[in-house]
Design a protein around this nucleic acid. Structure first.
Lengths: 152, 152
DNA sequence: TAAAAATCTGTATTGAGTACAGAAAAATGC
DNA sequence: GCATTTTTCTGTACTCAATACAGATTTTTA
């Protein structure tokens, strides 16, 4: 397994304590928000500025080191699982997020896009499943946070 | 075909000029933003307040009259094609958005989610394809708006 | 060790959307 | 047609996420 330092260097990024810590924290806690990262990295290496967090996650996701997920209704989340084309399931009620491995091969839903308009090139399929997590099914839907009414 | 008035009434919404105009405008121009709607409805019926636009699109999407799409990097968009489970293709460069009909049946990518964690219930699969539109392929990627660097 | 890159501090701004409250207008039920 | 209810309008304020900038400082790299 490639070391975090090598990972940074191979993407033309100099190795700093902040970047290593961000990487480590997101690896440990996938689906972290920028704020989560700020808090955890602070605990890890003493201090980091919010700006640096944003700078870091931005340059990381631009370069493909992090994957950014931005489901509607919540702030952006980041994860280190990239390239394996897994998907996400978000609970409409409590907004919790879990990974879902896609069973239809490596580039799953791209095959579903045979009728792409002429001239377009697709390089990624982003899939978000919406539903309800176990604990939110048993109780009444709370004060209607992200949920849609009128759906079965 | 059901009339817009009936559509509103059947969802327990009283019929108002604003709501009819929002419906009409979004039908005519799918993938409209709240701002687009505000402008077009203003042209249509003289005036509408921004708050009413937000109120309207929110109650509409809560009730399933409108579908809300919220791709990262741009503001929420609304469309009237609901329930047919089509998907969207967004250009990384110019952020334009087109519909894509899914070829794998009515609830396409739900079948790809066989390994759902126990206890979860899924009711919708939201799929966004990312790529490049014809005109953005021929030219150099512009000043790096939403695009990811370092991707083939 | 020098040059370049990254970070920090601090402040400010943008953009999207929400909140609220009172007044006015319109739609609905009878 | 009238009363009640719902919706809309006006206007202002606020939140939250993210970005921008600028100068000083620190750290990395060559």
């Amino acid at each position: 397994m490639i070391s975090p330092e090598e990972l940074l260097r191979s993407h033309n990024l100099s190795v700093t304590a902040q970047r290593l810590a961000v990487l480590k924290v997101v690896q440990r806690e996938p689906h972290s928000t920028a704020d989560d990262i700020y808090n955890n990295v602070s605990a890890e290496i003493g201090t980091i500025s919010r700006q640096s967090v944003f700078d870091t996650v931005n340059s990381f996701s631009e370069r493909g080191l992090l994957r950014r997920i931005q489901p509607m209704g919540s702030s952006a989340r980041y994860e280190t699982r990239i390239g394996d084309n897994h998907h996400h399931l978000i609970c409409r009620s409590c907004a919790c997020l879990v990974d879902i491995d896609c069973v239809t091969g490596m580039r799953p839903c791209l095959t579903a896009a045979d009728n792409v308009p002429h001239g377009y090139v697709i390089d990624e399929a982003e899939v978000i499943f919406w539903g309800y997590c176990p604990s939110c099914q048993t109780q009444q839907p709370p004060t209607e946070s992200i949920s849609k009414k009128g759906k079965k």
